[in-house]
Amino acid sequence: MYYFIVNPNSRSGKGALIWKGLEGILNERNVEYKTFFTEYRGHAVLLSESITSYAAPETPVTLIAVGGDGTIQEVLSGVRDLSYITFGYIPTGSGNDFCRGMKLPAEPGEALDLILSGCRPHPMDVPVLTCGTGSSHFAISCGIGFDAGVCHEVSVTPMKKVLNRIGLGKLVYLFVALKQLLFLKPSPMTLVMDDDNVQQFSKVYFTAVMNQKYEGGGFKFCPNASPSDGYLDVIVVDSLSKPKVLCCLPTAFFGKHTIFHGIHIFRCKKIDIHSDLALPVHKDGESAGILKEFSVSIGAAQVRMIS
Protein backbone atom coordinates (compact mmCIF):
# COMPACT_ATOMS: atom_id res chain seq x y z
CA MET A 1 0.00 0.00 0.00
CA TYR A 2 1.27 3.45 -0.97
CA TYR A 3 0.11 6.52 0.96
CA PHE A 4 0.29 9.74 -1.06
CA ILE A 5 0.11 13.16 0.60
CA VAL A 6 -0.58 15.61 -2.22
CA ASN A 7 -0.31 19.39 -2.17
CA PRO A 8 -2.78 20.35 -4.95
CA ASN A 9 -1.76 24.02 -4.76
CA SER A 10 1.93 23.43 -5.50
CA ARG A 11 3.37 25.13 -8.59
CA SER A 12 0.64 27.80 -8.42
CA GLY A 13 -2.21 25.27 -8.55
CA LYS A 14 -0.76 22.93 -11.18
CA GLY A 15 -0.17 20.28 -8.51
CA ALA A 16 -3.78 19.07 -8.74
CA LEU A 17 -3.55 18.68 -12.52
CA ILE A 18 -0.22 16.83 -12.28
CA TRP A 19 -1.65 14.48 -9.67
CA LYS A 20 -4.64 13.70 -11.90
CA GLY A 21 -2.24 12.40 -14.55
CA LEU A 22 -0.26 10.37 -12.00
CA GLU A 23 -3.44 8.88 -10.58
CA GLY A 24 -4.33 7.62 -14.05
CA ILE A 25 -1.01 5.76 -14.18
CA LEU A 26 -1.60 4.22 -10.74
CA ASN A 27 -5.07 3.01 -11.72
CA GLU A 28 -3.77 1.67 -15.04
CA ARG A 29 -1.18 -0.41 -13.21
CA ASN A 30 -3.65 -1.57 -10.54
CA VAL A 31 -1.50 -0.13 -7.75
CA GLU A 32 -3.02 -0.21 -4.26
CA TYR A 33 -2.88 3.32 -2.82
CA LYS A 34 -4.63 5.98 -0.77
CA THR A 35 -4.55 9.72 -1.40
CA PHE A 36 -4.69 12.57 1.11
CA PHE A 37 -4.88 16.21 -0.04
CA THR A 38 -3.49 19.10 1.97
CA GLU A 39 -5.90 21.99 2.53
CA TYR A 40 -3.76 24.52 4.39
CA ARG A 41 -0.21 25.17 5.57
CA GLY A 42 0.76 22.60 8.20
CA HIS A 43 -1.95 20.13 7.16
CA ALA A 44 0.60 17.63 5.79
CA VAL A 45 2.08 17.35 9.30
CA LEU A 46 -1.27 16.20 10.69
CA LEU A 47 -1.97 13.87 7.78
CA SER A 48 1.46 12.27 8.06
CA GLU A 49 1.12 11.84 11.82
CA SER A 50 -2.23 10.10 11.39
CA ILE A 51 -1.07 7.82 8.56
CA THR A 52 2.10 6.70 10.35
CA SER A 53 0.75 6.51 13.91
CA TYR A 54 0.56 2.71 13.79
CA ALA A 55 3.78 2.12 11.87
CA ALA A 56 5.87 -0.65 13.41
CA PRO A 57 8.47 -3.26 12.33
CA GLU A 58 5.70 -5.66 11.32
CA THR A 59 3.56 -2.91 9.71
CA PRO A 60 5.92 -0.48 7.92
CA VAL A 61 4.44 2.41 5.92
CA THR A 62 5.39 3.62 2.44
CA LEU A 63 4.74 7.35 2.46
CA ILE A 64 4.99 9.55 -0.64
CA ALA A 65 5.06 13.36 -0.62
CA VAL A 66 3.71 15.04 -3.77
CA GLY A 67 4.46 18.75 -3.81
CA GLY A 68 7.34 21.16 -3.35
CA ASP A 69 10.28 21.10 -0.96
CA GLY A 70 8.08 22.52 1.80
CA THR A 71 5.70 19.56 1.50
CA ILE A 72 8.61 17.19 2.21
CA GLN A 73 9.42 19.10 5.38
CA GLU A 74 5.84 18.90 6.64
CA VAL A 75 5.39 15.22 5.80
CA LEU A 76 8.62 14.22 7.57
CA SER A 77 7.76 16.40 10.58
CA GLY A 78 4.57 14.42 11.12
CA VAL A 79 6.34 11.06 11.41
CA ARG A 80 6.89 10.00 15.02
CA ASP A 81 9.39 7.21 14.28
CA LEU A 82 11.22 7.36 10.96
CA SER A 83 12.63 3.85 11.43
CA TYR A 84 9.44 2.23 10.12
CA ILE A 85 8.91 4.51 7.12
CA THR A 86 9.88 4.15 3.48
CA PHE A 87 9.75 7.64 1.98
CA GLY A 88 9.32 8.72 -1.62
CA TYR A 89 8.97 12.06 -3.34
CA ILE A 90 7.26 13.30 -6.49
CA PRO A 91 8.20 16.91 -7.30
CA THR A 92 5.42 19.29 -8.31
CA GLY A 93 6.99 22.46 -6.91
CA SER A 94 9.26 25.07 -8.48
CA GLY A 95 12.48 24.88 -6.40
CA ASN A 96 13.39 21.17 -6.58
CA ASP A 97 16.53 21.44 -4.43
CA PHE A 98 15.68 18.07 -2.90
CA CYS A 99 15.72 16.42 -6.33
CA ARG A 100 19.10 18.01 -7.08
CA GLY A 101 20.63 16.85 -3.83
CA MET A 102 19.19 13.32 -3.95
CA LYS A 103 19.62 12.96 -7.75
CA LEU A 104 15.93 12.20 -8.17
CA PRO A 105 13.95 12.65 -11.39
CA ALA A 106 12.53 16.18 -11.71
CA GLU A 107 9.73 14.98 -13.99
CA PRO A 108 6.73 13.70 -11.93
CA GLY A 109 6.02 10.69 -14.16
CA GLU A 110 9.63 9.52 -13.96
CA ALA A 111 9.60 10.01 -10.19
CA LEU A 112 6.50 7.80 -9.93
CA ASP A 113 8.17 5.14 -12.08
CA LEU A 114 11.13 5.12 -9.69
CA ILE A 115 8.84 4.72 -6.67
CA LEU A 116 6.97 1.81 -8.28
CA SER A 117 10.15 0.14 -9.54
CA GLY A 118 10.79 -1.70 -6.29
CA CYS A 119 14.36 -0.40 -6.04
CA ARG A 120 16.11 -0.73 -2.70
CA PRO A 121 15.71 2.38 -0.51
CA HIS A 122 18.77 4.24 0.77
CA PRO A 123 19.17 5.70 4.29
CA MET A 124 18.79 9.47 4.60
CA ASP A 125 19.49 11.72 7.58
CA VAL A 126 16.57 13.80 8.82
CA PRO A 127 17.79 16.74 10.96
CA VAL A 128 15.72 18.25 13.75
CA LEU A 129 15.20 22.01 14.17
CA THR A 130 14.35 23.09 17.73
CA CYS A 131 12.98 26.54 18.60
CA GLY A 132 12.05 26.96 22.25
CA THR A 133 9.78 24.04 23.14
CA GLY A 134 8.84 23.18 19.55
CA SER A 135 10.69 21.02 17.05
CA SER A 136 10.30 19.84 13.47
CA HIS A 137 12.19 17.86 10.86
CA PHE A 138 13.66 19.12 7.63
CA ALA A 139 15.29 17.39 4.66
CA ILE A 140 17.30 20.04 2.80
CA SER A 141 18.41 22.95 4.99
CA CYS A 142 17.45 25.56 7.51
CA GLY A 143 18.94 28.98 7.89
CA ILE A 144 18.86 32.41 9.50
CA GLY A 145 19.34 35.81 7.89
CA PHE A 146 19.53 36.61 4.19
CA ASP A 147 18.52 33.21 2.77
CA ALA A 148 15.56 32.94 5.15
CA GLY A 149 14.50 36.51 4.39
CA VAL A 150 14.36 35.64 0.69
CA CYS A 151 12.29 32.52 1.45
CA HIS A 152 9.88 34.51 3.63
CA GLU A 153 9.28 37.17 1.00
CA VAL A 154 9.05 34.77 -1.94
CA SER A 155 6.35 32.78 -0.13
CA VAL A 156 4.04 35.80 0.09
CA THR A 157 4.81 37.81 -3.05
CA PRO A 158 2.15 37.61 -5.81
CA MET A 159 4.98 37.89 -8.36
CA LYS A 160 5.81 34.20 -7.82
CA LYS A 161 2.42 33.00 -9.09
CA VAL A 162 2.59 35.29 -12.11
CA LEU A 163 6.09 34.15 -13.12
CA ASN A 164 5.32 30.48 -12.40
CA ARG A 165 2.47 30.61 -14.92
CA ILE A 166 4.86 31.62 -17.69
CA GLY A 167 7.65 29.29 -16.63
CA LEU A 168 9.90 31.97 -15.12
CA GLY A 169 9.27 31.28 -11.44
CA LYS A 170 12.96 31.18 -10.55
CA LEU A 171 13.34 34.87 -11.49
CA VAL A 172 11.35 35.86 -8.42
CA TYR A 173 14.20 34.57 -6.22
CA LEU A 174 16.62 36.86 -8.05
CA PHE A 175 14.42 39.95 -7.67
CA VAL A 176 13.72 39.28 -3.99
CA ALA A 177 17.37 38.43 -3.25
CA LEU A 178 18.54 41.77 -4.66
CA LYS A 179 15.95 43.61 -2.57
CA GLN A 180 16.79 41.70 0.61
CA LEU A 181 20.51 42.26 0.14
CA LEU A 182 20.00 45.98 -0.30
CA PHE A 183 18.17 46.42 3.01
CA LEU A 184 19.75 43.64 5.08
CA LYS A 185 21.60 44.55 8.27
CA PRO A 186 24.24 41.90 9.12
CA SER A 187 24.15 40.62 12.68
CA PRO A 188 26.73 39.36 15.18
CA MET A 189 26.27 35.62 15.71
CA THR A 190 27.69 32.93 17.92
CA LEU A 191 27.72 29.29 16.82
CA VAL A 192 28.26 26.48 19.31
CA MET A 193 28.93 23.18 17.52
CA ASP A 194 28.98 19.81 19.24
CA ASP A 195 28.89 21.64 22.60
CA ASP A 196 32.53 22.72 22.62
CA ASN A 197 33.42 24.36 19.29
CA VAL A 198 32.50 28.03 19.73
CA GLN A 199 32.74 30.36 16.71
CA GLN A 200 31.92 34.07 16.90
CA PHE A 201 31.23 36.35 13.94
CA SER A 202 30.61 40.09 13.81
CA LYS A 203 28.65 40.78 10.60
CA VAL A 204 26.78 37.69 9.42
CA TYR A 205 24.62 37.89 6.31
CA PHE A 206 23.31 34.39 6.81
CA THR A 207 24.06 31.03 8.37
CA ALA A 208 22.65 27.91 6.72
CA VAL A 209 22.65 24.41 8.19
CA MET A 210 22.64 21.94 5.30
CA ASN A 211 21.63 18.31 4.97
CA GLN A 212 21.96 18.55 1.17
CA LYS A 213 24.36 20.37 -1.14
CA TYR A 214 21.75 22.76 -2.57
CA GLU A 215 19.21 25.30 -1.37
CA GLY A 216 17.44 28.38 -2.71
CA GLY A 217 16.78 27.03 -6.20
CA GLY A 218 20.20 25.56 -7.00
CA PHE A 219 22.79 27.36 -4.86
CA LYS A 220 25.44 24.75 -4.02
CA PHE A 221 26.24 26.31 -0.66
CA CYS A 222 27.85 23.24 0.92
CA PRO A 223 29.51 21.31 -1.94
CA ASN A 224 30.61 18.41 0.27
CA ALA A 225 27.34 17.90 2.13
CA SER A 226 25.94 14.37 2.14
CA PRO A 227 22.39 13.47 3.23
CA SER A 228 23.50 10.14 4.67
CA ASP A 229 26.82 10.73 6.46
CA GLY A 230 25.40 11.56 9.90
CA TYR A 231 26.73 15.14 9.79
CA LEU A 232 25.38 18.63 9.27
CA ASP A 233 27.28 21.00 6.97
CA VAL A 234 27.19 24.68 7.96
CA ILE A 235 27.95 27.76 5.89
CA VAL A 236 28.46 31.23 7.40
CA VAL A 237 28.75 34.33 5.22
CA ASP A 238 30.44 37.00 7.33
CA SER A 239 32.08 40.44 7.02
CA LEU A 240 31.83 40.83 3.26
CA SER A 241 30.81 44.06 1.56
CA LYS A 242 27.41 43.92 -0.15
CA PRO A 243 28.94 44.28 -3.64
CA LYS A 244 31.24 41.35 -2.83
CA VAL A 245 28.27 39.25 -1.65
CA LEU A 246 26.55 40.11 -4.93
CA CYS A 247 29.62 38.93 -6.87
CA CYS A 248 29.98 35.82 -4.73
CA LEU A 249 26.40 34.53 -5.03
CA PRO A 250 26.50 33.51 -8.72
CA THR A 251 29.62 31.40 -8.09
CA ALA A 252 27.63 29.44 -5.47
CA PHE A 253 25.63 27.81 -8.26
CA PHE A 254 28.85 25.95 -9.08
CA GLY A 255 30.13 25.57 -5.51
CA LYS A 256 33.05 27.92 -6.20
CA HIS A 257 32.13 30.53 -3.58
CA THR A 258 34.18 28.79 -0.88
CA ILE A 259 37.37 30.49 -2.10
CA PHE A 260 36.11 33.92 -0.97
CA HIS A 261 37.40 35.35 2.29
CA GLY A 262 34.42 35.56 4.63
CA ILE A 263 32.87 32.23 3.60
CA HIS A 264 33.20 29.71 6.43
CA ILE A 265 32.27 26.01 6.21
CA PHE A 266 31.92 23.67 9.21
CA ARG A 267 30.74 20.12 9.91
CA CYS A 268 29.05 18.94 13.10
CA LYS A 269 26.31 16.76 14.50
CA LYS A 270 24.68 19.49 16.56
CA ILE A 271 24.67 23.30 16.44
CA ASP A 272 23.24 26.09 18.57
CA ILE A 273 22.90 29.44 16.79
CA HIS A 274 22.62 32.74 18.69
CA SER A 275 22.02 36.03 16.85
CA ASP A 276 22.14 39.51 18.42
CA LEU A 277 19.25 40.53 16.15
CA ALA A 278 15.95 38.72 15.67
CA LEU A 279 16.07 37.53 12.05
CA PRO A 280 13.99 35.39 9.67
CA VAL A 281 14.54 31.64 9.97
CA HIS A 282 13.50 29.03 7.38
CA LYS A 283 13.23 25.26 7.21
CA ASP A 284 13.29 23.83 3.67
CA GLY A 285 12.26 27.23 2.36
CA GLU A 286 9.25 27.59 4.68
CA SER A 287 9.09 30.17 7.45
CA ALA A 288 10.14 29.06 10.93
CA GLY A 289 9.54 32.53 12.39
CA ILE A 290 11.65 35.52 13.40
CA LEU A 291 14.16 34.29 15.97
CA LYS A 292 17.35 35.10 17.83
CA GLU A 293 18.32 31.52 18.59
CA PHE A 294 17.57 27.92 17.65
CA SER A 295 19.27 24.53 17.60
CA VAL A 296 19.74 21.85 14.95
CA SER A 297 20.81 18.26 15.43
CA ILE A 298 20.98 15.05 13.42
CA GLY A 299 17.87 13.00 14.11
CA ALA A 300 18.09 9.76 16.06
CA ALA A 301 16.88 7.69 13.10
CA GLN A 302 17.37 7.76 9.36
CA VAL A 303 14.51 7.32 6.93
CA ARG A 304 14.56 4.78 4.08
CA MET A 305 14.50 6.99 0.98
CA ILE A 306 13.45 5.70 -2.44
CA SER A 307 16.23 7.06 -4.65
Score class of each variant (00 low, 15 high):
D69A: 01
T59P: 08
L249M: 12
E110M: 06
V156Q: 15
D195Q: 13
V172M: 00
S241H: 13
E293S: 15
S202R: 14
D69Y: 02
L114R: 09
Y3L: 10
I140D: 11
A148S: 13
G93V: 02
G15Q: 00
L26Q: 11
C119G: 09
A301L: 08
A208N: 13
D196G: 14
L47N: 09
F221E: 04
H137T: 03
S48C: 07
I271A: 05
G68I: 02
E28Q: 12
W19Q: 01
Q302R: 10
L26V: 02
D233P: 02
I51K: 07
H261E: 14
L246F: 11
N9H: 11
N9A: 15
S295K: 10
I144P: 06
S117A: 10
E58Q: 11
M193C: 13
V66I: 02
G67C: 02
P158D: 04
Y33P: 08
F175Y: 11
P91G: 07
K170W: 12
C268L: 11
P57K: 13
S202L: 15
Q73N: 15
L174V: 12
L26I: 14
A252S: 15
A55H: 11
E28W: 08
V45L: 15
N224T: 08
K242Y: 04
T207C: 15
S10E: 01
P60A: 11
E107Q: 09
L116Q: 06
I72V: 11
G217Q: 06
L17N: 02
G118A: 10
Q73W: 01
L171P: 03
Y173Q: 06
F183C: 03
G145T: 13
H152E: 11
E107F: 01
I90D: 00
G21I: 02
S226L: 07
S117R: 09
T59E: 12
S155F: 09
D81K: 02
G95W: 00
G70C: 03
I298S: 05
C151L: 12
H261Y: 11
G24V: 02
S94K: 00
M159W: 10
G149D: 12
K256N: 12
F206Y: 15
E107H: 07
S275L: 10
I271L: 06
F87R: 03
S287I: 01
V79F: 05
A139D: 04
L82I: 07
I90C: 01
G78S: 11
P127H: 08
M1W: 07
E286Y: 03
V237E: 00
A106F: 10
H137Y: 10
F254E: 13
N211W: 01
C131G: 06
N197H: 13
T86G: 06
S228K: 09
S50C: 04
G167P: 06
R304N: 14
V66P: 00
P227D: 07
V245R: 02
